[in-house]
Design a protein around this nucleic acid. Structure first.
Lengths: 228, 228
DNA sequence: CTTCACATACTTGCATACAAGTATGCCCGG
DNA sequence: CCGGGCATACTTGTATGCAAGTATGTGAAG
């Protein structure tokens, strides 16, 4: 088992770096759902002691991304349908509420910034750079939330969306969806630009629901990643 | 400084017990906003070592309830206007989204259970038992969320609402609001019973906004509890 | 060959020791 | 009497040692 997590998220303080590294490893399914993790092993791999590892694992447990069983082991949580549904609910609720406010507040400069991000997504799509596409996807959703004055919406949704993001990563191999997603982004931004909260929310909700639409396919191709 | 946190939240596992104890001490302002906390001191007080204390403090930092400054100290976070606004936004978004679904799903049995909780609130009010009133307040909001099938809405909102709940606790001394709150609860339940999501959401939103209405009063009486 | 019992090697939970760094109070000099 | 510098006593961050408990593999008995 070869792991390449040590070089990621450099620059931040050790504690945060470790948390981000482990989280990223889990969300990217570099650590497979159901896989057993050993604190000692991770500590040796990341060149630190068990203490900061444990700290990160406790936080990941709060994120429902790992299950810590005393005297037995720590396991990467399998993808759970209810956890996915919960994360979807949280993300929809928070981001839709934020986009309504954003639609009321956004000026032309804000809208231009949003459109610029979508343009960069188009570039990434043309370059077939799926990873880069998702970077700007995050960027766009974060911008929308921050426009509302409640950046917390994005950060909390992100934190609560571990299970959801694993699905997103697993469905990255399907670029068929990507141009559809770009068009959906445009619809959301159009509504924000027009100052129509209702329409913006509807468009964003439809967009967010597309993420989970690929779930059955993923479960078929990776049944061992799922609970029960 | 006399602390009485050791006997609370008994029965659960030590780790969770410590987290709940500390969180409760902070939210109840038994630990004052701005107060310095010492890991060693807390460890001695709770009869454990620093390790589980640190675990709890890290989680509380994620909740924005403490600030840990390396090599300097750990402080109870002062009440921040933006933190309160963020918490309010999160709570409103999640609970309102949940109550919409609840209004569509609830049957007469569910509604009866909700009304029973309100009745217990009335009893607590008549007995002038404010603490008990808030217990059933939590119970009601939790029930509404769980009715929607997304209990996560309540638990996450609760977790994110540390700053908000401190305000709630500080305004406990004003029973003038209480009967008004009970009537608002009734309005929400009526809308749920009638199966009208829109009206339920509006009623709940109005109710939730009452919590922060007492904020200016609290800031006047405890300016040292607030940021800046 | 099968099955049960035991020893071993692992796991996490907790306690403790050490490292690095900061604020504070004391002491000395002016 | 006042001010600056240094030692000290704290803080958190990390590493490590010990305790309690579980799964597994091995060996012996039937």
């Amino acid at each position: 088992m070869r792991i390449s997590i040590s070089d990621r998220a450099a620059g931040t303080r050790p504690r945060e770096r470790i948390y981000v590294s482990l989280r990223d490893a889990i969300v990217s399914t570099e650590f497979h759902p159901g896989q057993r993790l050993s604190e000692t092993d991770l500590a040796a791999r990341l060149g630190v002691s068990r203490t900061p590892i444990r700290e990160a694992l406790v936080r990941l447990r709060d994120d429902r991304l790992v299950e810590i069983v005393p005297q037995l082991g720590t396991y990467v949580a399998r993808i759970s349908h209810t956890a996915v549904a919960d994360a979807q609910f949280v993300r929809e609720s928070l981001e839709c509420a934020a986009v309504r406010i954003a639609a009321e507040k956004a000026d032309s400069e804000d809208v231009a910034a949003l459109r610029a991000i979508v343009e960069r997504q188009r570039e990434a799509f043309r370059a077939s750079d799926v990873a880069r596409f998702y970077v700007f996807d995050d960027e766009l959703h974060r911008s929308l939330s921050e426009l509302s004055g409640h950046g917390i919406a994005w950060s909390l949704a992100q934190r609560a969306s571990g299970h959801l993001n694993r699905i997103r990563r697993l469905s990255m191999t399907m670029p068929a969806y990507i141009d559809e997603m770009i068009e959906e982004h445009v619809l959301v931004i159009d509504a924000v630009a027009a100052g129509e909260p209702e329409r913006a929310e509807t468009a964003l909700r439809a967009h967010l629901q597309m993420v989970v639409s690929g779930l059955p396919d993923i479960e078929r191709s990776h049944p061992e990643y799922f609970e029960r």
